[in-house]
Design a protein around this nucleic acid. Structure first.
Lengths: 246, 246
DNA sequence: AAAATATTGTGTTTAATTTACACAATAAAT
DNA sequence: ATTTATTGTGTAAATTAAACACAATATTTT
C-alpha cells in the first residue's frame, strides 16, 4: 500500500497522473488533428498531402496530422500542426468532424479531429516543400494512409456545401481574379458546369466584387476584367443573399 | 535501468503503457462524449439534461456525458453513454462538433465530442428518471455546467439547419400526427411562424405523408386528420426536394 | 336541437427567383 | 485586315415562394 517504488518508472507514474486529478488517467486516449488543405491551381481543385510518418504506410500519402498535446487547445493544435508541417500560419482552419473508430490507426488508439482550410497556392509558397509535401488533384485522390480517404471525402463534401452557402471560394484565388477564374473555381469544387451569364449575374447581384479597372494579361484572346473580393461589402450585404445557391 | 519496481504502481504503469506502443502515452488526453437530446412536448422543443456529476457544478444542469473508454469506438461510446444515462438504446445519434478548450472542464483536460439526437418523448418513457434527468424547455435554458451552454447552442443551430434540409422532425413526433402538430414542431424548432396553407402544400408536395384515415380525439373543436411519415416514399422522392427550405 | 366556438381544409393571385438561351465586342496572333 | 478565342450583355419562360379568406366540421354550451 504505502510502499513507494523508486526509479524512473515511478516518476513516470507521477507525471502521468499529476496533470489531471479527477479524470482517471486510465481513460486517456491519444488525440490527433488532421488537416485537409485545399488549393486551386491550373483550374483544378487540389489537396495538400504529406508522406506518411509510419513505415507501414510509407507508400501512401496522408493528411497533415499530428498528436494534440495535453496542454494545448484543440484549435491551437490544428494551427500548430499546420505551421509545423507547412510553415503556413495565416490561414483559416475550420473543424469538420472527429473520427474515432477503434482500429483506425495502426500505431494504437488514436481519435482524430479533422480540420479543413482553403489556401491560395500562389500566395502561400510552401516553405517546407522537401518532397514530403505535394499538391494532389482532388479528382485523382485514390487511397490514402489510415482512414484519411474517408476524412478527405467528408471534408470535400463539406466544402462543396459550405461554398454554396458562403463566399468562401475567394481564399483559393489570387487577390485579383477574373470572373472566368471564379467560375472555374466553382465548377472545379462542385464538379458541375455552370451557365456563364447566370453565374455573373448572381455574383454581381451579391455586390461584394470590386472592379479593379485592370484586365488579364498575355492571353491569346480577349482578356477579362479583374475583380477583388470586398469583405466589408460582403458583411454588409450578407443577409440579403446568405444561403442562396450560387 | 533493468530494475523492476514491484507493487501496484508498476502494474499501473504497464497497463497504462501496454495498450498503445507507438503512440506516446504522455500525449494522451481524456476524451468525453456529451449528448444533446431534443424532444418535443406540449408544443415546445425540449432538451434532456442531467444534474452535474461534479460537486462544484451541482447546482447546474449539464448535458448527458461521460468519458470515452480507450477500447471503444467514438460513436459506440455515444450510444453507450446515452443508454447508461437514460436507458434509451433505439435512437439515432449524430455527431455535431468537438470542443477542446484547455480549461473547459474543471476536473482536468477533457476534450469532448458533442452528439445530438431527436427523440419522441411519448414513445421513450425514460427508465431512469430519478430526479437526475429532466426535460427542459429549450427556450429557457440559461447557463449549464462547464461549456455545455456553448455546446447546446451550437447543437440547436445545427438542428435548425438540418431540419430545413431533411425531414428529420418526424422522430420528435408520435407515429401518427396531425399537420398542425407537425407545423407546431417546425415553428418550435425554428422559432418562427409559418403560413398554414403554404406549409401544408409544401409537405404534401413532398409526398411522404400517408393518410391514416383517422382523426384526432378529444378536442373541443374540429379535429385534424392523422398522418404518418413513410420512410420509403421519402427515399424515393428525396432528390426532387432535398435541400429545399421548408 | 340550435347556437357558439375553435380549428381544419382548401385555391388563387402575385411576386420573386431560377433557368435557358444567342450575339456583338474585343484583344491578340497571323 | 482577317482569324481566333473568349468576354460581356438581356430577355423570356418556367419554377418556386408568399400572401391571403372562407366554408366545413366536431365539440361544447345554452
Amino acid at each position: 500500500m504505502g510502499t513507494v517504488a523508486n526509479g524512473k518508472q515511478v516518476k513516470k507514474i507521477k507525471s502521468l497522473l499529476a496533470i489531471q486529478s479527477e479524470v482517471q488517467s486510465s481513460n486517456r486516449i491519444a488525440l490527433s488533428v488532421d488537416c485537409v488543405i485545399f488549393g486551386f491551381d491550373e483550374n483544378k481543385l487540389k489537396v495538400l498531402l504529406m508522406r506518411s510518418d509510419l513505415k507501414k504506410y510509407q507508400s501512401k500519402w496522408s493528411l497533415l496530422g499530428d498528436l494534440v498535446k495535453p496542454d494545448e487547445d484543440l484549435d491551437a493544435a490544428a494551427y500548430r500542426i499546420l505551421k509545423q508541417r507547412t510553415g503556413l500560419d495565416d490561414v483559416y482552419l475550420e473543424q469538420v468532424h472527429s473520427f474515432g473508430k477503434i482500429n483506425r490507426h495502426p500505431g494504437g488508439r488514436v481519435v482524430t479531429v479533422a480540420y479543413c482550410s482553403l489556401i491560395n497556392i500562389q500566395h502561400h509558397k510552401l516553405k517546407i516543400l522537401d518532397n514530403e509535401l505535394h499538391w494532389h488533384d482532388v479528382a485523382s485522390v485514390k487511397d490514402l494512409a489510415f482512414d484519411h480517404k474517408t476524412i478527405f471525402d467528408l471534408s470535400l463534401q463539406r466544402l462543396q456545401k459550405r461554398v454554396q452557402e458562403h463566399p468562401l471560394g475567394f481564399s483559393l484565388l489570387p487577390n485579383k481574379f477574373s470572373l472566368r477564374e471564379l467560375q472555374n473555381l466553382y465548377e472545379a469544387i462542385l464538379s458541375i458546369k455552370l451557365d456563364r451569364r447566370n453565374f455573373r449575374k448572381k455574383f454581381f447581384a451579391m455586390n461584394f466584387l470590386v472592379d479593379m479597372d485592370e484586365i488579364e494579361q498575355n492571353l491569346p484572346h480577349r482578356p477579362g476584367k479583374l475583380y477583388k473580393f470586398d469583405y466589408d461589402k460582403y458583411e454588409k450585404n450578407k443577409k440579403k443573399w446568405s444561403g442562396i445557391d450560387f
